[in-house]
Lab assay of single mutants.
Amino acid sequence: TFTSYQLEELEKVFQKTHYPDVYAREQLAMRTDLTEARVQVWFQNRRA
């Protein structure tokens, strides 16, 4: 599960791009204290 802060950050990036590159995902992962893999999976699920 994600915190409301994490979801907010993820959604913010999703609004800009549905396909963030690895750099964007790593920045987001650091900001949200998630792994890059978790961020990647979240985007895959969000796009589905």
Rank of each mutant, 00 (worst) to 15 (best):
K16V: 14
L10E: 02
L28D: 01
A24I: 13
L28G: 00
K12I: 07
R47C: 06
W42T: 14
E36A: 10
A29H: 02
H18M: 13
L7C: 06
V41P: 01
R38G: 07
T32Y: 05
Q44E: 15
Y19G: 02
E11I: 10
T3S: 10
S4L: 11
Q6M: 05
T3V: 04
L34G: 01
Y5G: 05
L10R: 00
T17L: 05
M30K: 14
H18W: 14
T32A: 08
F14Y: 13
T35F: 03
E36N: 06
F2Q: 02
T32F: 08
L34M: 08
K16P: 09
T32D: 01
N45Q: 14
E26C: 14
R25C: 08
W42P: 00
M30R: 14
V13D: 02
Y19T: 05
E11Q: 04
V39T: 02
T3C: 06
L34F: 01
L10P: 00
V39G: 00
F14P: 00
A24G: 05
D33R: 10
D33M: 12
V22G: 08
L34P: 11
T1W: 13
Y5I: 07
E11R: 03
A24C: 14
R47F: 03
V22Y: 14
T17R: 04
K12M: 08
R46M: 06
L7E: 08
F14C: 01
L7A: 12
K16R: 12
H18F: 10
A29T: 05
W42C: 02
P20D: 02
V13Q: 08
Q44P: 02
E8H: 09
Q40P: 01
Q6V: 05
R31G: 04
N45T: 08
E9G: 02
R46I: 02
F43S: 00
N45C: 11
D21L: 03
V22A: 14
L28H: 02
Q44F: 08
Y5F: 14
Q6C: 03
K12D: 04
R47S: 04
R25H: 03
K16D: 09
T32P: 00
R46L: 02
S4R: 13
Q15M: 10
R25T: 10
E9T: 04
E26P: 02
E26L: 15
T1I: 12
E36F: 08
A48Y: 08
V39R: 00
F43V: 01
V13H: 06
V13E: 10
V22H: 13
F43I: 01
R31H: 05
T1A: 13
Q15F: 06
L28C: 03
E11C: 03
R46A: 07
L28Q: 00
V13M: 14
T1L: 12
Q15S: 12
Q27D: 11
T17A: 05
E26W: 13
Y5M: 08
A24R: 05
E8I: 10
E26R: 15
A29N: 12
V13K: 03
S4M: 11
M30S: 10
A37T: 09
A24Q: 14
D21I: 02
Q40E: 15
Q44L: 07
K12W: 06
L34N: 02
L10V: 03
A48G: 11
E8K: 09
L28V: 07
W42I: 03
Q40K: 15
V41C: 12
L28R: 13
S4H: 13
L28M: 03
R25I: 15
E9C: 07
Q15W: 06
A37R: 10
L34R: 00
L7P: 01
A48R: 12
A24P: 15
F14A: 02
K12F: 05
Q15Y: 07
A37V: 10
V13P: 01
E36D: 08
K12G: 05
N45H: 11
Y23G: 07
H18P: 15
T3G: 03
T1R: 11
F43L: 04
Y5D: 08
E8R: 10
R31I: 12
Q6R: 01
Q40G: 07
Y23F: 13
E26I: 14
K16I: 14
E9W: 06
F2E: 03
L28N: 00
